[in-house]
Design a binder for these strands. Structure first.
Lengths: 330, 330
DNA sequence: ACATGGCATACAAACGTTTGCAAGATCTCA
DNA sequence: TGAGATCTTGCAAACGTTTGTATGCCATGT
C-alpha cells in the first residue's frame, strides 16, 4: 500500500539501512548514493513510519498539551502557539482540556504520557506532589506555574500588576478592588502577591475580593461586591471575569469608565471588541506557547540540558483601552 | 524501565501471547489464567505500548481534528466535544488549526494522516478534488460540510435560518440584511441557500451583503452597509461577526434592539455575555463534536459500515435574547 | 483401550524502522 | 607494492506487540 523503507531501498539499489542513514545521518553515506536514495524516496512518496521509528528510538515525536479549559479564550491562543512551533520542529501535538477538574488533569496526563515525549501543563492546578510523581515518568514543562524545580515558562505577573496599579493611580484612583482567581491557580496567587507592594508604592488602597472561579459569572457577582465597597476601579483576575464586571456594571447603570474603571488580564481577542473595549494586562499567548515548546525541546535534547535556562519569564504589557478613565472628580 | 508484555508473562508464568490474548481476546483463554494474567498486569502497572501495537495492527488509536481557527470561539466547543468522546473510546486526539489557510489545511491533513486512524475535518475549506484525494488515503469525516459522498455531520442550517427569519417577521421586520460568510465555506453557502425561501414564506424582503471573512472586523464594516440599506434587522453568518455589528451599532449610536435587531449564529459562550445579549441560532457544538467522533468510529469499524448512516444532521435552535425586538413602529 | 475432537497454551513470524558491527573497497604513504 | 587507515555499505538484531499455526492435554464416545 504505502511505500516502506524496503521499497525505497530496492528502488535505489541499496540496503534498508543505507536508506535510513541517507535520510537522517547524512554524514555517513556517500553523497551520490545519498542523492540517489533521496530521489527514490521522494519519487515513491516515502514517509517513515513513526510508530516503527518510535518503537526503536523510544521517541514518539509527539508532545502533549493540557489546558484547564478551552472555552476560556486565553487558552486557544496558547494552543495555537504551541501547535505552530511544534509543527515547525516536526512534532505533532495532542491536546486535552480538563474542564478545570483537578482529578481529570492527573488522569489525562498519565494517559497522554505514554504517547508523547514531553508534556506541557498550562496553568495546571495539580498538587506539587502529583507533579513530582508525574515528572518522574515523563518530561514535563510548566506554563503559568512554577513548582518543584520543573522547567517553567511564566509571565511577569507581578510586573503586570504594577503597571496596572500605577496606571490607575495616575488616573487618580485611590481605592481599587481586585477580584482574585481560583486559590489553586498559581498565577492567581502570584498576582495577589504582587499587588500589595505595587499598591503601596502607588499610594493606592486595595480591596481584595475572592476567590472566584475564572468565569464570566464571577465577574457579574463580583461587580456588586465592588460597588458595595465604594471603589472607583476594579482589577480582575482575567479578561473573562472583567467582561462579567462590565456586563453587570452596564446592567446596574454604572457607566464605565466615567464612574468605574475596569482592568482585565490576558488580552483575549474579545477585549478589544467589547464595548467599552477593555484595558488589560496583555500576556503574549502565542509567544508563550512557542516558548514553552522551545523549552520542552531543549530539555528533551539532553545535550543542551546543562546550559539551558530552565526558567523563562516573559514580559507583560498593559494595554490601555476604553474601560479605564480618570477617577470621578479627578 | 516500564513493564512490557514479557514482564507480565513472566510474572504470571505464561507466554507473551497468552498475556496479549488475556488482555483483549478474553474468550480464547481460560478464565482462571486470564485473571491471573490480569492481576499480574495491574500489579506491574503494565500498559501496552501503543506504537508496537499500532505497528502490527495498523491502527494507531488516534484521531485527528482540523479546524479553521481556534480563535473563533465556536471551534473550541467542538474540540471539547471531540476530545471528550474520543477519550471515552480510548482514542487520543491530535488537533490542528489552519489559520483559515486553505493550503495549510491540505498539508496538515497529509501530515496528520500518517499518525491517525481517521480525520475529522471541521468546516473545511478544501476543494472537492483535494478532499477526494485525501480520503483515498485516510478515513475522513466531515463536519459542517457535505462533499463527495464522504460521511458528514452537519447541522440544519436551513431550518435555523427559517426559525430566525420567522422570529424577525413576527417582530414586524419587513426588510432584513444578511451578512454572508466566506464563499468557500459550505455552511455559509447553505445558509445563503436557505434564506430566500424562508424570507419569501415569511413575507420578508432580503438584502444580502458579503462575502465577509468570519471575523469581528467584518461585522464592524458590514454594520455601516446595513445601515445604508435601510433595514431594521441584520442576520450575521456567525456570532463573531454579529458581535462586530453590535460594536459598530453602539459606536454609531444605533440602539439595539430598539432601532435595529441583530441575530447571530453558533451560540458561542460570549453571546450570552455581551450587552445586549445576542439572539442567535444555536448549534450544538459539543454534541456535534461527539457525534462526529461516533460517525468516524463507526466508519472505522468496517462491520458497521453497511448499516451506518453516513449522513447525520443535527437540529439547530433559535435562542432569543436581548438583541432582537419589535421593528421600529411595529 | 483407542481414536476423535475441543480446549488451552506456546512458538515464531511479522510489522517498519534504527543501529552496532563487520566486511569490502578505496586511498595514502612509505 | 603492500600495510594500514578511511570511507562506504550491508547484515542482523532489536524495539513490543499481535496472530496464525502447531502442540499438548484432557474428555468423550465407541
Amino acid at each position: 500500500m504505502v511505500a516502506t523503507i524496503r521499497d525505497v531501498a530496492e528502488a535505489a539499489g541499496v540496503s534498508p539501512s543505507t536508506v535510513s542513514r541517507a535520510l537522517t545521518d547524512s554524514e555517513l553515506v556517500n553523497p551520490v548514493t545519498r542523492d540517489r536514495v533521496r530521489r527514490a524516496a521522494t519519487r515513491l512518496g516515502y514517509q517513515p513510519n513513526r510508530a516503527a521509528r518510535g518503537l526503536i528510538t523510544g521517541r514518539t515525536h509527539n508532545i502533549g498539551l493540557i489546558v484547564p479549559d478551552l472555552a476560556n479564550p486565553f487558552f486557544p491562543g496558547v494552543v495555537k502557539g504551541v501547535r505552530a512551533r511544534a509543527h515547525e520542529a516536526d512534532f505533532a501535538m495532542f491536546v486535552a482540556d480538563t474542564d478545570e477538574d483537578e482529578g481529570a488533569e492527573a488522569r489525562l496526563a498519565r494517559t497522554l504520557a505514554k504517547q508523547v515525549d514531553g508534556l506541557i501543563l498550562c496553568s495546571t492546578r495539580m498538587k506539587d506532589e502529583d507533579l513530582r510523581a508525574l515528572s518522574s515518568d515523563i518530561t514535563v514543562v510548566l506554563m503559568n506555574r512554577r513548582a518543584v524545580d520543573l522547567p517553567a515558562l511564566t509571565v511577569d505577573n507581578v510586573g503586570g500588576m504594577r503597571q496596572a496599579v500605577s496606571h490607575l493611580a495616575a488616573l487618580g484612583h485611590r481605592r481599587v478592588a481586585y477580584i482574585a482567581g481560583p486559590a489553586n491557580s498559581w498565577s492567581s496567587r502570584e498576582r495577589v502577591r504582587g499587588l500589595p507592594p505595587a499598591a503601596e508604592a502607588a499610594g493606592v488602597e486595595l480591596v481584595e475580593l475572592g476567590d472566584f472561579p475564572p468565569h464570566f459569572g464571577s465577574g457579574v457577582a463580583a461587580a456588586d461586591l465592588a460597588l458595595a465597597k465604594g471603589v472607583t476601579a476594579v482589577m480582575a483576575y482575567n479578561d473573562v471575569v472583567a467582561l462579567g464586571l462590565l456586563n453587570r456594571f452596564s446592567t446596574r447603570g454604572v457607566s464605565v469608565p466615567e464612574q468605574m474603571s475596569v482592568v482585565g488580564c490576558d488580552d483575549i481577542t474579545l477585549s478589544a471588541m467589547c464595548s467599552p473595549s477593555l484595558t488589560t494586562i496583555a500576556l503574549p499567548q502565542k509567544q508563550a506557547g512557542r516558548a514553552a515548546v522551545d523549552l520542552l525541546l531543549s530539555v528533551l535534547d539532553e545535550e543542551d540540558r546543562a546550559n539551558t535556562s530552565l526558567d523563562v519569564e516573559l514580559e507583560t504589557q498593559l494595554v490601555v483601552r476604553a474601560s479605564t478613565g480618570p477617577a470621578p472628580g479627578f
